[in-house]
Design a binder for these strands. Structure first.
Length: 322
DNA sequence: ATGTCAGGCACGGCCTGA
């Protein structure tokens, strides 16, 4: 079961890249953020592309800004749009959609940016995260869950290319990190970081100033999983190829492969493509701890990481081509 | 150098958001 999250920065502008990526990456479930479409426009643009590939979807958007979606080819049940009890700015915005897919309650989340610590949008961000905690706290004890999306928070200073550059900025402040900590305190595991504890792993690079080629990035797109789900993680990586070239989002997808659940009721309805065998699933199966790294495959490593240099220089970082 | 994009409005560049 392959789950991905991707802030695509406009579904319409990204249509060709998204479809191309679905065909290449073969995710079973995709959490999208910043579709920037209303529900009708999303349907008009994507019904044919998605249904032909076996995906059902739930879109929650009202047009110009925000907009989230869940795509699934392994079932899409009990769809829930919006964040119950969440704040507005001033009205509630389409930043959350959830569904049960393959036995896991999955959330696609677009946390407010915050803009600046003294901006009203920052207070809104913290209120929104508090409401999210309330919703996940009800769900987490009852079922396996994953909360995926653009959190607009770098969990630690290791998740930004230069902490000094972020002094006074959002995404790194203590209240934001505490709000994220309140989510992990529910027992949710940041599965990408658990998988790559010591590597430079970014998911977002500003379009400006050659940030991507220099690897001046941030890790703000997160895949949080309840312990039962985290224990099934067979691989987790950032698909940096999706950020390369022209016409890309400024975010790259985060991809997580789960082994089949212990009760064996979960699996893709579409036969796994041959590419799947080279992405970390071929090893021993369940029992791979989310903390463990010994069974990471070379291709997972190649896709996921940039090696940290002893003297970090953005211009000289190279891909780890295992 | 806020050095780039995206959408909206409305068809030519501004404005807003990220």
């Amino acid at each position: 079961m392959r789950i991905a999250t991707w802030n695509i920065n406009s579904a319409k502008a990204r249509q060709a890249r998204l479809i191309e990526w679905l065909d290449r990456a073969q995710p079973d479930v995709v959490c999208l953020q910043e579709t920037k479409l209303d529900d009708n426009a999303f349907a008009e643009n994507f019904d044919e592309d998605l249904f032909r590939r076996g995906y059902a979807y739930a879109h929650h958007g009202d047009g110009r800004w925000n907009g989230v979606a869940l795509l699934s080819r392994i079932g899409l049940d009990d769809v829930e749009r919006g964040l119950a009890g969440g704040p507005g700015f001033p009205d509630p915005e389409p930043r959350a959609v959830a569904a049960t897919c393959g036995g896991v309650r999955i959330w696609s989340l677009y946390v407010p940016n915050g803009r600046a610590p003294d901006d009203p949008h920052y207070a809104y961000k913290l209120e929104w995260l508090a409401a999210l905690r309330g919703v996940l706290a009800e769900s987490a004890p009852r079922q396996p869950i994953m909360a995926c999306g653009d959190f607009n928070i770098a969990p630690t200073d290791a998740d930004v290319w230069d902490p000094a550059d972020f002094v006074g900025a959002t995404h790194v402040t203590e209240p934001e990190r505490s709000a994220l900590g309140a989510l992990t305190d529910l027992g949710l595991v940041d599965v990408l970081r658990a998988r790559w504890p010591d590597d430079v792993v970014y998911t977002y690079w500003d379009y400006r100033a050659l940030c991507f080629p220099k690897n001046m990035g941030m890790r703000i797109d997160l895949t949080l999983a309840s312990a039962d789900v985290a224990g099934r993680v067979a691989a987790a990586w950032v698909d940096r190829a999706a950020r390369k070239g022209t016409g890309t989002s400024d975010h790259a997808p985060v991809v997580v492969d789960l082994d089949t659940a212990p009760d064996g009721d979960v699996g893709p309805m579409v036969p796994p493509p041959s590419s799947r065998g080279s992405s970390g699933r071929g090893s021993s199966g369940r029992g791979s701890s989310s903390q463990g790294s010994s069974n990471r495959s070379g291709s997972e490593r190649a896709a996921a990481t940039i090696r940290r240099k002893s003297a970090p220089s953005p211009a000289t970082t190279t891909e780890d081509g295992a």
